[in-house]
């Protein structure tokens, strides 16, 4: 009888602690850098779904940059990697971001964007080999462009070369490619 009572009490405490420790949709208390699923990709998706975009970009005026004229040596070329390595490399960008700051990175994925309070967020989404999950990296183009006319359409496959950097917003650290060239 005592043992049953103890087991019940332990289970009750466990469920109580669990319900206190995990809160619904909140991602509070995490640094924002996570492995594999990547809270950056989650946040980009949240921004897209919660954003105030009113129109799809028209890709008629889009022009590709000449990636070969970027002017800096590419340190990490993710486009030459297989799908397993690509996903692992992007996961490492998320989890070990500080190791890559300043490095020139080339990636390929699908274009997407989101709307924040006062700016647009542009990202390149990379799927894993089984397409069960995806990760995104934000980018800021070197040469100013007009959105949406001079940007690709959402879902278009793009190749980016840019300098890896991080920034903080609120409690979270995000990764991005700055001074980027884009090719479709």
């Amino acid at each position: 009888m005592k043992k049953i009572f103890c087991i019940t009490a332990v289970l009750a405490v466990m469920f109580t602690v669990c319900s206190c420790g995990a809160g619904g949709s909140s991602r509070n208390g995490r640094s924002g850098i996570k492995s594999n699923t990547g809270s950056v990709a989650d946040t980009i998706k949240e921004r897209i779904e919660g954003g105030k975009a009113t129109e799809e970009p028209k890709s008629g005026s889009f022009r590709s940059d000449d990636l070969s004229s970027y002017g800096k040596k590419i340190d990490i070329d993710v486009t030459k990697m297989g799908s397993t390595m690509t996903y692992s490399q992007v996961s490492n960008f998320m989890t070990n971001a500080d190791d890559y700051i300043g490095k020139v990175v080339k990636i390929k994925g699908n274009f997407t964007y989101g709307v924040g309070d006062d700016r647009y967020y542009f990202a390149c989404i990379i799927q894993d080999a089984t397409a069960c999950c995806s990760q995104g990296i934000e980018f800021i183009l070197k040469n100013g462009r007009q959105f949406p006319e001079e940007y690709p359409a959402v879902g278009d496959e793009i190749t980016l070369v840019g300098v890896f950097d991080t920034y903080n917003e609120g409690k979270y650290q995000y990764i991005q490619l700055i001074d980027a060239y884009i090719e479709k």
Binding site: C18, A22, K34, T37
Partner: peptide
């Protein structure tokens, strides 16, 4: 019951 991330299946 208490999903820690947005993509439980992948995790």
């Amino acid at each position: 019951i208490f999903p820690p991330s947005g993509n439980l299946t992948a995790d």
